[in-house]
Design a protein around this nucleic acid. Sequence first.
DNA 1: TTAGTTTAATTGACCAGTCAGAATAATTTC
DNA 2: GAAATTATTCTGACTGGTCAATTAAACTAA
Lengths: 194, 194
Amino acid sequence: MNRKAELKRQQIIKAAYQAVSDKGYEAVTLQDIADYANVSKGVPNYYFQNKEDVLAHLLAQITERIYEKEKEAVEKETSAESMLQAYINTVFVSAEENEKFYRVYLDFLAQATKNNRYREINERFYQNCASISKQILMQGAKEKTFVVNDFETAGRAIRTMIDGYMIQWMMTGDHSQHRAYKQACYQAITSYLS
Amino acid sequence: MNRKAELKRQQIIKAAYQAVSDKGYEAVTLQDIADYANVSKGVPNYYFQNKEDVLAHLLAQITERIYEKEKEAVEKETSAESMLQAYINTVFVSAEENEKFYRVYLDFLAQATKNNRYREINERFYQNCASISKQILMQGAKEKTFVVNDFETAGRAIRTMIDGYMIQWMMTGDHSQHRAYKQACYQAITSYLS
DNA sequence: TTAGTTTAATTGACCAGTCAGAATAATTTC
DNA sequence: GAAATTATTCTGACTGGTCAATTAAACTAA
């Protein structure tokens, strides 16, 4: 019952993810989302308040999932360096997944400047990312692997470089450069932290 | 004659800039652009092929102007450190101008993943930025102020951090943090280069 | 049967681009 | 230098199309 409804909602969110990735945030229609989910046009409106509601759930879900993956990967490691490496590896999973995610995420970031709901969801994501960075940095400080004055500042710097490199990679439109950007990102961060 | 037409085109591009900043890339209509320019609906279509053409000219113009300002500011300086400082100062001009520019620019970046014309214009902008970074880094290497292995890599890293910090600042929605983000950006770059 | 779910049809709104004709500016002619 | 002619620019109604959201009808499974 409620379980089945939850599955349906998942189905719609997943379809919305694919649809936004293919067509872009604004271009996407409820019809598209319904088509990708193999349901009729009315269904998304039945399970969600409106189009924005579907998309807000989508943003919340993809950022939450990314965070959980990152957290899990980092917590498996023990040394600061391997934690950082695991973090970067999880962020730069693969060209295909990264392109899909950042196409959608970038669209939401652009919207977030005018939409408080998206901004809040993203704010939570940033804070989650900051908590991961802090974990890595504290380990690094303990080991004396990294030189850290202020955890807050350094944590922000890490996410800055990740997002910055990812966007630049996106703009090249060249999947084969994925590995190179990942390494450049890792080196920029370690260079910053030493 | 041709001069007058050019003024009119400028008027429309300027109006489009304001309109996109206020309403967002996709939400903006030709009617909005006409309204902001105080002309009737047909005028943008008279001076440009279509809506996308107006917006492509807008992107080309704002990126070109930013580049020219940055270049001019950097070339006034002589030491690597002051060049870098001048660069950052020009990027982080003021909260108001930065918000306006990045609101629009971020919208275009999101579009660029699906629009080759925008991607190419942005690519040119990236290359222009890279040439500025290179100028600073070469001076830094000569002075031995900065440690640089690869100009290409370091140049990209600089722009990465600038864009990353600017986006994070945008997401805070807090104008009063502008100065803090500027300094954080400067410190991250110098820290990376030493 | 009936509550939950899905489909199909409808409504009302919006928009890009077109175009015919109006208005204005430039040029020519006498 | 005024009138006539031509070129340029502007206007806004109109077209064809799209869309979100609503509604009512149909289906389904307990």
